[in-house]
Design a binder for these strands. Structure first.
Lengths: 224, 224
DNA sequence: GCAAAAATAGTAGTATTACTATCAACTCTT
DNA sequence: AAGAGTTGATAGTAATACTACTATTTTTGC
Protein backbone atom coordinates (compact mmCIF):
# COMPACT_ATOMS: atom_id res chain seq x y z
CA UNK A 1 0.00 0.00 0.00
CA UNK A 2 1.06 3.53 -0.73
CA UNK A 3 3.17 5.25 1.90
CA UNK A 4 0.87 8.24 1.84
CA UNK A 5 -2.01 6.07 2.95
CA UNK A 6 -0.05 4.79 5.93
CA UNK A 7 0.25 8.27 7.33
CA UNK A 8 -3.37 9.19 6.88
CA UNK A 9 -5.72 8.90 9.77
CA UNK A 10 -9.16 7.58 8.87
CA UNK A 11 -11.48 10.04 10.53
CA UNK A 12 -14.47 8.53 12.26
CA UNK A 13 -17.54 10.23 13.69
CA UNK A 14 -16.72 11.17 17.27
CA UNK A 15 -20.02 10.03 18.70
CA UNK A 16 -19.15 6.42 17.83
CA UNK A 17 -16.52 6.26 20.56
CA UNK A 18 -16.23 7.76 24.05
CA UNK A 19 -12.49 8.32 23.76
CA UNK A 20 -10.49 8.16 20.56
CA UNK A 21 -8.69 4.80 20.51
CA UNK A 22 -6.01 6.33 18.28
CA UNK A 23 -5.12 8.69 21.13
CA UNK A 24 -3.47 6.17 23.40
CA UNK A 25 -1.52 2.98 23.51
CA UNK A 26 -4.36 1.13 25.24
CA UNK A 27 -6.82 2.37 22.65
CA UNK A 28 -4.68 0.97 19.84
CA UNK A 29 -4.31 -2.36 21.60
CA UNK A 30 -8.08 -2.53 22.03
CA UNK A 31 -8.53 -2.07 18.30
CA UNK A 32 -5.67 -4.36 17.29
CA UNK A 33 -6.61 -7.32 19.49
CA UNK A 34 -10.32 -6.61 19.16
CA UNK A 35 -10.00 -7.32 15.43
CA UNK A 36 -8.03 -10.49 16.07
CA UNK A 37 -10.50 -11.73 18.67
CA UNK A 38 -13.69 -10.93 16.75
CA UNK A 39 -12.23 -12.70 13.75
CA UNK A 40 -11.42 -15.72 15.89
CA UNK A 41 -14.62 -15.99 17.97
CA UNK A 42 -17.17 -14.25 15.76
CA UNK A 43 -18.88 -11.10 16.92
CA UNK A 44 -21.62 -12.97 18.80
CA UNK A 45 -19.17 -14.80 21.04
CA UNK A 46 -16.89 -11.81 21.48
CA UNK A 47 -17.08 -9.92 24.79
CA UNK A 48 -15.16 -7.01 26.30
CA UNK A 49 -14.24 -9.30 29.17
CA UNK A 50 -12.48 -11.73 26.84
CA UNK A 51 -10.75 -8.86 25.07
CA UNK A 52 -9.63 -7.39 28.40
CA UNK A 53 -8.10 -10.72 29.43
CA UNK A 54 -6.35 -10.91 26.06
CA UNK A 55 -4.68 -7.52 26.36
CA UNK A 56 -4.13 -7.81 30.11
CA UNK A 57 -6.37 -4.89 30.89
CA UNK A 58 -9.86 -4.65 32.34
CA UNK A 59 -13.42 -4.48 31.08
CA UNK A 60 -13.93 -1.04 32.59
CA UNK A 61 -10.92 0.35 30.76
CA UNK A 62 -12.40 -0.79 27.46
CA UNK A 63 -15.76 0.70 28.39
CA UNK A 64 -14.02 4.05 28.64
CA UNK A 65 -13.33 3.89 24.91
CA UNK A 66 -16.52 2.28 23.64
CA UNK A 67 -20.00 2.28 25.16
CA UNK A 68 -20.64 -1.32 24.10
CA UNK A 69 -19.54 -3.93 21.62
CA UNK A 70 -22.07 -2.79 19.06
CA UNK A 71 -20.44 0.63 18.84
CA UNK A 72 -17.07 -1.08 18.68
CA UNK A 73 -18.26 -2.96 15.60
CA UNK A 74 -19.52 0.27 14.06
CA UNK A 75 -16.13 1.82 14.73
CA UNK A 76 -14.20 -1.03 13.10
CA UNK A 77 -16.44 -1.26 10.06
CA UNK A 78 -16.45 2.52 9.63
CA UNK A 79 -12.69 2.38 9.63
CA UNK A 80 -12.79 -0.35 6.99
CA UNK A 81 -15.08 1.61 4.68
CA UNK A 82 -13.02 4.76 5.20
CA UNK A 83 -9.95 2.79 4.21
CA UNK A 84 -11.70 1.42 1.11
CA UNK A 85 -12.82 4.93 0.21
CA UNK A 86 -9.23 6.20 0.35
CA UNK A 87 -8.08 3.37 -1.86
CA UNK A 88 -10.87 4.03 -4.33
CA UNK A 89 -10.28 7.78 -4.56
CA UNK A 90 -6.56 7.26 -4.77
CA UNK A 91 -6.70 4.68 -7.53
CA UNK A 92 -9.35 6.36 -9.69
CA UNK A 93 -8.56 10.05 -9.37
CA UNK A 94 -6.03 10.09 -12.17
CA UNK A 95 -8.13 8.04 -14.58
CA UNK A 96 -9.97 9.94 -17.28
CA UNK A 97 -11.95 7.20 -18.99
CA UNK A 98 -15.17 6.77 -17.01
CA UNK A 99 -15.47 3.09 -17.90
CA UNK A 100 -11.95 2.37 -16.75
CA UNK A 101 -12.67 4.40 -13.63
CA UNK A 102 -15.80 2.43 -12.76
CA UNK A 103 -14.13 -0.92 -13.39
CA UNK A 104 -11.23 0.05 -11.17
CA UNK A 105 -13.65 1.10 -8.44
CA UNK A 106 -15.55 -2.20 -8.70
CA UNK A 107 -12.33 -4.13 -8.45
CA UNK A 108 -11.29 -2.25 -5.31
CA UNK A 109 -14.54 -2.65 -3.42
CA UNK A 110 -15.26 -6.26 -4.42
CA UNK A 111 -11.84 -7.88 -4.16
CA UNK A 112 -10.75 -9.86 -1.16
CA UNK A 113 -8.05 -8.29 0.99
CA UNK A 114 -5.29 -10.82 0.64
CA UNK A 115 -2.28 -9.52 2.49
CA UNK A 116 -1.81 -7.48 5.58
CA UNK A 117 -1.19 -4.02 4.30
CA UNK A 118 -0.14 -2.92 7.76
CA UNK A 119 -1.99 0.30 8.12
CA UNK A 120 -0.38 0.91 11.50
CA UNK A 121 -1.86 -1.47 14.10
CA UNK A 122 -4.77 -2.76 12.01
CA UNK A 123 -4.81 -6.16 10.31
CA UNK A 124 -6.83 -5.46 7.19
CA UNK A 125 -7.12 -9.12 6.17
CA UNK A 126 -8.92 -9.95 9.41
CA UNK A 127 -10.92 -6.75 9.26
CA UNK A 128 -12.13 -7.68 5.77
CA UNK A 129 -13.29 -11.05 7.09
CA UNK A 130 -15.09 -9.31 9.93
CA UNK A 131 -16.87 -7.00 7.50
CA UNK A 132 -17.95 -10.00 5.39
CA UNK A 133 -19.26 -11.92 8.39
CA UNK A 134 -20.58 -9.18 10.64
CA UNK A 135 -21.22 -5.91 8.81
CA UNK A 136 -24.93 -6.40 8.34
CA UNK A 137 -25.36 -6.94 12.08
CA UNK A 138 -24.28 -3.34 12.61
CA UNK A 139 -27.37 -1.94 10.87
CA UNK A 140 -29.96 -4.72 11.21
CA UNK A 141 -31.13 -3.34 14.56
CA UNK A 142 -34.10 -1.51 16.00
CA UNK A 143 -31.85 1.53 16.58
CA UNK A 144 -30.74 1.90 12.95
CA UNK A 145 -32.73 5.06 12.20
CA UNK A 146 -31.41 6.93 15.24
CA UNK A 147 -27.88 5.81 14.57
CA UNK A 148 -28.17 6.70 10.91
CA UNK A 149 -29.36 10.18 11.90
CA UNK A 150 -26.29 10.48 14.10
CA UNK A 151 -24.07 9.73 11.12
CA UNK A 152 -22.89 6.27 12.12
CA UNK A 153 -23.08 5.00 8.57
CA UNK A 154 -21.90 8.17 6.83
CA UNK A 155 -18.70 6.74 5.40
CA UNK A 156 -20.40 3.74 3.82
CA UNK A 157 -23.08 5.97 2.32
CA UNK A 158 -20.44 8.32 0.91
CA UNK A 159 -18.63 5.40 -0.68
CA UNK A 160 -21.86 4.05 -2.14
CA UNK A 161 -22.55 7.50 -3.55
CA UNK A 162 -19.18 7.71 -5.24
CA UNK A 163 -19.93 4.47 -7.05
CA UNK A 164 -23.41 5.70 -7.94
CA UNK A 165 -21.87 8.75 -9.64
CA UNK A 166 -19.39 6.63 -11.53
CA UNK A 167 -22.23 4.46 -12.81
CA UNK A 168 -24.15 7.51 -14.00
CA UNK A 169 -20.98 8.84 -15.64
CA UNK A 170 -20.69 5.79 -17.85
CA UNK A 171 -24.40 5.48 -18.56
CA UNK A 172 -26.60 8.45 -17.71
CA UNK A 173 -29.65 6.59 -18.98
CA UNK A 174 -29.38 3.74 -16.47
CA UNK A 175 -32.37 4.25 -14.14
CA UNK A 176 -31.05 2.62 -10.94
CA UNK A 177 -27.49 3.84 -10.27
CA UNK A 178 -27.91 4.11 -6.47
CA UNK A 179 -29.47 0.65 -6.23
CA UNK A 180 -26.78 -0.86 -8.41
CA UNK A 181 -24.04 0.70 -6.28
CA UNK A 182 -25.71 -0.76 -3.19
CA UNK A 183 -25.99 -4.15 -4.85
CA UNK A 184 -22.30 -4.16 -5.70
CA UNK A 185 -21.21 -3.20 -2.20
CA UNK A 186 -23.54 -5.41 -0.17
CA UNK A 187 -23.78 -8.34 -2.53
CA UNK A 188 -20.02 -8.63 -3.01
CA UNK A 189 -19.71 -9.17 0.74
CA UNK A 190 -22.48 -11.72 0.48
CA UNK A 191 -20.74 -13.49 -2.39
CA UNK A 192 -17.51 -13.80 -0.42
CA UNK A 193 -19.59 -15.43 2.28
CA UNK A 194 -21.32 -17.78 -0.16
CA UNK A 195 -17.99 -18.78 -1.65
CA UNK A 196 -16.79 -19.86 1.79
CA UNK A 197 -19.95 -21.45 3.21
CA UNK A 198 -22.60 -22.06 0.53
CA UNK A 199 -20.57 -22.91 -2.53
CA UNK A 200 -23.56 -24.40 -4.37
CA UNK A 201 -25.20 -20.96 -4.42
CA UNK A 202 -22.52 -19.24 -6.48
CA UNK A 203 -20.14 -19.87 -9.35
CA UNK A 204 -17.43 -18.06 -7.41
CA UNK A 205 -14.57 -20.22 -6.19
CA UNK A 206 -10.79 -20.28 -6.28
CA UNK A 207 -10.83 -19.76 -10.05
CA UNK A 208 -13.63 -17.24 -10.32
CA UNK A 209 -13.80 -14.24 -8.00
CA UNK A 210 -16.81 -12.15 -6.98
CA UNK A 211 -15.02 -9.28 -8.73
CA UNK A 212 -15.32 -11.08 -12.05
CA UNK A 213 -19.00 -11.70 -11.49
CA UNK A 214 -19.69 -8.04 -10.76
CA UNK A 215 -17.46 -6.80 -13.58
CA UNK A 216 -19.33 -9.02 -16.02
CA UNK A 217 -22.64 -7.77 -14.62
CA UNK A 218 -21.68 -4.11 -15.04
CA UNK A 219 -20.32 -4.59 -18.55
CA UNK A 220 -23.46 -6.37 -19.71
CA UNK A 221 -26.01 -4.31 -17.87
CA UNK A 222 -24.92 -0.79 -18.70
CA UNK A 223 -24.82 0.85 -22.10
CA UNK A 224 -21.10 1.35 -22.65
CA UNK B 1 -54.05 -17.07 -1.24
CA UNK B 2 -55.13 -20.31 -2.78
CA UNK B 3 -57.19 -22.63 -0.60
CA UNK B 4 -54.92 -25.52 -1.45
CA UNK B 5 -51.98 -23.71 0.07
CA UNK B 6 -53.83 -23.15 3.32
CA UNK B 7 -54.12 -26.86 3.88
CA UNK B 8 -50.52 -27.67 3.10
CA UNK B 9 -48.08 -28.11 5.90
CA UNK B 10 -44.66 -26.63 5.25
CA UNK B 11 -42.28 -29.40 6.22
CA UNK B 12 -39.26 -28.35 8.18
CA UNK B 13 -36.17 -30.35 9.07
CA UNK B 14 -36.90 -32.11 12.36
CA UNK B 15 -33.56 -31.36 13.94
CA UNK B 16 -34.45 -27.65 13.99
CA UNK B 17 -37.00 -28.16 16.74
CA UNK B 18 -37.23 -30.44 19.79
CA UNK B 19 -40.98 -30.88 19.50
CA UNK B 20 -43.04 -29.96 16.46
CA UNK B 21 -44.81 -26.67 17.25
CA UNK B 22 -47.55 -27.63 14.79
CA UNK B 23 -48.40 -30.60 17.03
CA UNK B 24 -49.98 -28.68 19.91
CA UNK B 25 -51.89 -25.60 20.82
CA UNK B 26 -49.00 -24.27 22.89
CA UNK B 27 -46.61 -24.83 19.99
CA UNK B 28 -48.80 -22.82 17.66
CA UNK B 29 -49.10 -20.01 20.19
CA UNK B 30 -45.30 -19.94 20.54
CA UNK B 31 -44.98 -19.52 16.78
CA UNK B 32 -47.83 -17.05 16.43
CA UNK B 33 -46.82 -14.71 19.26
CA UNK B 34 -43.12 -15.30 18.63
CA UNK B 35 -43.55 -13.74 15.20
CA UNK B 36 -45.47 -10.82 16.65
CA UNK B 37 -42.93 -10.23 19.39
CA UNK B 38 -39.79 -10.55 17.24
CA UNK B 39 -41.34 -8.12 14.79
CA UNK B 40 -42.04 -5.71 17.61
CA UNK B 41 -38.81 -5.94 19.59
CA UNK B 42 -36.33 -7.06 16.96
CA UNK B 43 -34.60 -10.42 17.28
CA UNK B 44 -31.80 -9.05 19.46
CA UNK B 45 -34.17 -7.81 22.17
CA UNK B 46 -36.44 -10.83 21.95
CA UNK B 47 -36.17 -13.44 24.72
CA UNK B 48 -38.07 -16.63 25.55
CA UNK B 49 -38.86 -15.10 28.93
CA UNK B 50 -40.67 -12.18 27.28
CA UNK B 51 -42.49 -14.56 24.95
CA UNK B 52 -43.52 -16.77 27.89
CA UNK B 53 -44.98 -13.77 29.71
CA UNK B 54 -46.85 -12.80 26.53
CA UNK B 55 -48.53 -16.15 26.07
CA UNK B 56 -48.96 -16.74 29.82
CA UNK B 57 -46.74 -19.76 29.81
CA UNK B 58 -43.20 -20.34 31.10
CA UNK B 59 -39.69 -20.23 29.71
CA UNK B 60 -39.23 -23.91 30.41
CA UNK B 61 -42.28 -24.79 28.35
CA UNK B 62 -40.90 -22.91 25.35
CA UNK B 63 -37.53 -24.62 25.77
CA UNK B 64 -39.37 -27.89 25.28
CA UNK B 65 -40.06 -26.85 21.67
CA UNK B 66 -36.88 -25.01 20.71
CA UNK B 67 -33.36 -25.37 22.06
CA UNK B 68 -32.72 -21.65 21.87
CA UNK B 69 -33.86 -18.50 20.11
CA UNK B 70 -31.41 -18.99 17.27
CA UNK B 71 -33.08 -22.26 16.28
CA UNK B 72 -36.44 -20.57 16.65
CA UNK B 73 -35.32 -18.00 14.06
CA UNK B 74 -34.12 -20.77 11.76
CA UNK B 75 -37.51 -22.44 12.13
CA UNK B 76 -39.45 -19.28 11.29
CA UNK B 77 -37.30 -18.32 8.32
CA UNK B 78 -37.32 -21.88 6.99
CA UNK B 79 -41.09 -21.76 7.13
CA UNK B 80 -41.03 -18.47 5.23
CA UNK B 81 -38.82 -19.81 2.44
CA UNK B 82 -40.89 -22.98 2.24
CA UNK B 83 -43.97 -20.84 1.85
CA UNK B 84 -42.29 -18.79 -0.90
CA UNK B 85 -41.22 -21.97 -2.63
CA UNK B 86 -44.80 -23.25 -2.71
CA UNK B 87 -45.99 -19.95 -4.14
CA UNK B 88 -43.28 -20.02 -6.77
CA UNK B 89 -43.90 -23.59 -7.87
CA UNK B 90 -47.63 -23.04 -7.87
CA UNK B 91 -47.53 -19.89 -9.94
CA UNK B 92 -44.94 -20.99 -12.49
CA UNK B 93 -45.75 -24.66 -13.04
CA UNK B 94 -48.34 -24.04 -15.69
CA UNK B 95 -46.30 -21.45 -17.60
CA UNK B 96 -44.57 -22.64 -20.75
CA UNK B 97 -42.61 -19.57 -21.81
CA UNK B 98 -39.32 -19.61 -19.85
CA UNK B 99 -39.05 -15.81 -19.84
CA UNK B 100 -42.54 -15.42 -18.45
CA UNK B 101 -41.74 -18.14 -15.93
CA UNK B 102 -38.58 -16.42 -14.71
CA UNK B 103 -40.25 -13.02 -14.48
CA UNK B 104 -43.09 -14.51 -12.46
CA UNK B 105 -40.61 -16.17 -10.13
CA UNK B 106 -38.70 -12.90 -9.66
CA UNK B 107 -41.90 -11.11 -8.85
CA UNK B 108 -42.87 -13.68 -6.24
CA UNK B 109 -39.57 -13.74 -4.38
CA UNK B 110 -38.85 -10.00 -4.51
CA UNK B 111 -42.26 -8.49 -3.78
CA UNK B 112 -43.27 -7.28 -0.36
CA UNK B 113 -45.90 -9.34 1.42
CA UNK B 114 -48.66 -6.81 1.76
CA UNK B 115 -51.61 -8.50 3.34
CA UNK B 116 -52.03 -11.20 5.87
CA UNK B 117 -52.71 -14.29 3.86
CA UNK B 118 -53.65 -16.18 6.99
CA UNK B 119 -51.81 -19.41 6.52
CA UNK B 120 -53.30 -20.80 9.69
CA UNK B 121 -51.74 -19.10 12.74
CA UNK B 122 -48.87 -17.36 10.92
CA UNK B 123 -48.87 -13.66 10.07
CA UNK B 124 -46.96 -13.58 6.80
CA UNK B 125 -46.67 -9.79 6.68
CA UNK B 126 -44.78 -9.75 9.98
CA UNK B 127 -42.81 -12.82 9.01
CA UNK B 128 -41.70 -11.09 5.81
CA UNK B 129 -40.48 -8.12 7.86
CA UNK B 130 -38.61 -10.49 10.16
CA UNK B 131 -36.92 -12.14 7.19
CA UNK B 132 -35.89 -8.73 5.82
CA UNK B 133 -34.47 -7.58 9.15
CA UNK B 134 -33.12 -10.78 10.65
CA UNK B 135 -32.54 -13.53 8.08
CA UNK B 136 -28.84 -12.91 7.62
CA UNK B 137 -28.29 -13.28 11.38
CA UNK B 138 -29.38 -16.90 11.05
CA UNK B 139 -26.34 -17.83 8.93
CA UNK B 140 -23.73 -15.22 9.84
CA UNK B 141 -22.48 -17.34 12.73
CA UNK B 142 -19.47 -19.48 13.59
CA UNK B 143 -21.70 -22.56 13.51
CA UNK B 144 -22.93 -22.05 9.93
CA UNK B 145 -20.97 -24.95 8.38
CA UNK B 146 -22.21 -27.48 10.93
CA UNK B 147 -25.76 -26.25 10.67
CA UNK B 148 -25.58 -26.24 6.89
CA UNK B 149 -24.38 -29.85 6.99
CA UNK B 150 -27.39 -30.67 9.14
CA UNK B 151 -29.69 -29.24 6.49
CA UNK B 152 -30.81 -26.12 8.32
CA UNK B 153 -30.72 -24.03 5.17
CA UNK B 154 -31.96 -26.68 2.76
CA UNK B 155 -35.21 -24.95 1.80
CA UNK B 156 -33.52 -21.67 0.94
CA UNK B 157 -30.90 -23.47 -1.13
CA UNK B 158 -33.58 -25.42 -2.99
CA UNK B 159 -35.43 -22.20 -3.77
CA UNK B 160 -32.24 -20.54 -4.97
CA UNK B 161 -31.59 -23.55 -7.18
CA UNK B 162 -35.02 -23.35 -8.77
CA UNK B 163 -34.31 -19.77 -9.78
CA UNK B 164 -30.85 -20.73 -11.03
CA UNK B 165 -32.45 -23.30 -13.36
CA UNK B 166 -34.98 -20.79 -14.62
CA UNK B 167 -32.16 -18.37 -15.43
CA UNK B 168 -30.29 -21.04 -17.36
CA UNK B 169 -33.49 -21.94 -19.18
CA UNK B 170 -33.85 -18.45 -20.61
CA UNK B 171 -30.14 -17.97 -21.33
CA UNK B 172 -27.94 -21.05 -21.27
CA UNK B 173 -24.92 -18.92 -22.15
CA UNK B 174 -25.10 -16.77 -19.03
CA UNK B 175 -22.06 -17.82 -16.97
CA UNK B 176 -23.29 -17.02 -13.43
CA UNK B 177 -26.83 -18.36 -12.96
CA UNK B 178 -26.31 -19.53 -9.35
CA UNK B 179 -24.73 -16.23 -8.35
CA UNK B 180 -27.48 -14.26 -10.02
CA UNK B 181 -30.16 -16.29 -8.25
CA UNK B 182 -28.41 -15.60 -4.95
CA UNK B 183 -28.16 -11.91 -5.76
CA UNK B 184 -31.88 -11.71 -6.48
CA UNK B 185 -32.86 -13.48 -3.27
CA UNK B 186 -30.47 -11.82 -0.85
CA UNK B 187 -30.28 -8.40 -2.44
CA UNK B 188 -34.03 -8.01 -2.73
CA UNK B 189 -34.26 -8.40 1.05
CA UNK B 190 -31.48 -5.85 1.33
CA UNK B 191 -33.31 -3.45 -0.99
CA UNK B 192 -36.46 -3.64 1.10
CA UNK B 193 -34.32 -2.70 4.06
CA UNK B 194 -32.63 0.18 2.20
CA UNK B 195 -35.99 1.48 1.07
CA UNK B 196 -37.10 1.70 4.70
CA UNK B 197 -33.91 2.93 6.37
CA UNK B 198 -31.33 4.17 3.85
CA UNK B 199 -33.43 5.72 1.13
CA UNK B 200 -30.49 7.62 -0.38
CA UNK B 201 -28.88 4.30 -1.31
CA UNK B 202 -31.62 3.11 -3.63
CA UNK B 203 -34.07 4.41 -6.20
CA UNK B 204 -36.73 2.18 -4.68
CA UNK B 205 -39.55 3.98 -2.89
CA UNK B 206 -43.33 4.06 -2.85
CA UNK B 207 -43.39 4.45 -6.64
CA UNK B 208 -40.60 2.07 -7.58
CA UNK B 209 -40.37 -1.38 -6.06
CA UNK B 210 -37.35 -3.66 -5.64
CA UNK B 211 -39.22 -6.03 -7.97
CA UNK B 212 -39.00 -3.48 -10.78
CA UNK B 213 -35.29 -3.00 -10.19
CA UNK B 214 -34.59 -6.72 -10.40
CA UNK B 215 -36.90 -7.26 -13.34
CA UNK B 216 -35.09 -4.52 -15.26
CA UNK B 217 -31.76 -6.05 -14.28
CA UNK B 218 -32.74 -9.50 -15.55
CA UNK B 219 -34.19 -8.21 -18.78
CA UNK B 220 -31.07 -6.19 -19.57
CA UNK B 221 -28.47 -8.63 -18.35
CA UNK B 222 -29.62 -11.85 -19.98
CA UNK B 223 -29.83 -12.62 -23.65
CA UNK B 224 -33.54 -12.99 -24.19
C1' DG C 1 9.63 21.85 41.94
C1' DC C 2 5.36 20.57 43.62
C1' DA C 3 0.42 20.45 44.78
C1' DA C 4 -4.03 20.31 42.56
C1' DA C 5 -6.56 18.76 38.85
C1' DA C 6 -7.33 15.71 35.14
C1' DA C 7 -6.84 11.44 32.97
C1' DT C 8 -6.48 6.58 33.27
C1' DA C 9 -6.40 1.90 35.40
C1' DG C 10 -8.32 -1.42 38.32
C1' DT C 11 -11.91 -3.69 41.71
C1' DA C 12 -16.31 -4.89 42.91
C1' DG C 13 -20.92 -5.32 42.34
C1' DT C 14 -25.80 -5.67 39.85
C1' DA C 15 -29.47 -6.86 36.57
C1' DT C 16 -30.45 -9.56 32.82
C1' DT C 17 -29.86 -13.42 29.79
C1' DA C 18 -29.75 -18.04 28.57
C1' DC C 19 -30.21 -21.70 29.97
C1' DT C 20 -30.86 -26.59 33.30
C1' DA C 21 -33.00 -29.35 36.79
C1' DT C 22 -36.58 -30.88 39.55
C1' DC C 23 -41.15 -31.76 40.91
C1' DA C 24 -46.10 -31.11 40.83
C1' DA C 25 -50.43 -31.19 38.33
C1' DC C 26 -53.44 -32.17 34.83
C1' DT C 27 -55.14 -34.76 30.76
C1' DC C 28 -55.68 -38.49 27.82
C1' DT C 29 -55.54 -43.22 26.85
C1' DT C 30 -55.97 -48.26 27.69
C1' DA D 1 -57.11 -47.02 37.97
C1' DA D 2 -52.33 -47.07 36.14
C1' DG D 3 -49.25 -44.92 33.26
C1' DA D 4 -47.62 -41.91 29.67
C1' DG D 5 -47.32 -37.46 27.97
C1' DT D 6 -47.74 -32.46 28.37
C1' DT D 7 -47.51 -28.28 30.78
C1' DG D 8 -46.61 -25.37 34.83
C1' DA D 9 -44.03 -23.65 38.78
C1' DT D 10 -39.89 -22.86 41.22
C1' DA D 11 -35.19 -22.58 41.83
C1' DG D 12 -30.60 -22.33 40.54
C1' DT D 13 -26.19 -21.38 37.61
C1' DA D 14 -22.79 -19.29 34.58
C1' DA D 15 -22.05 -15.78 31.54
C1' DT D 16 -23.07 -11.22 29.77
C1' DA D 17 -23.43 -6.36 29.81
C1' DC D 18 -22.93 -3.13 32.13
C1' DT D 19 -22.21 0.80 36.53
C1' DA D 20 -20.15 2.73 40.51
C1' DC D 21 -16.38 3.47 43.02
C1' DT D 22 -11.43 3.60 44.35
C1' DA D 23 -6.50 3.78 43.28
C1' DT D 24 -2.79 5.39 40.61
C1' DT D 25 -0.42 8.04 37.25
C1' DT D 26 0.22 12.09 34.40
C1' DT D 27 -0.26 16.80 33.34
C1' DT D 28 -0.28 21.61 34.35
C1' DG D 29 -0.30 25.99 36.62
C1' DC D 30 2.13 28.76 39.64
Amino acid sequence: MDALLKNLKISINESIYLKDPESSDLGKRIVKYGIILINELGFDNFTFKKLAAHIESTESSIYRYFENKHKFLIYLTSWYWGWKEYQLVFATNNLTDPVEKLLKAIEIVTREVEEDQSFNHINEVFLNKIVINEYSKSYLTKEVDDENKDGYFAIYKRLSNRIRKMISDVDASYPYPASLASTILADSLHHHFLKNHFSSLTECDDQTSPSQYFEHLILNLLNL
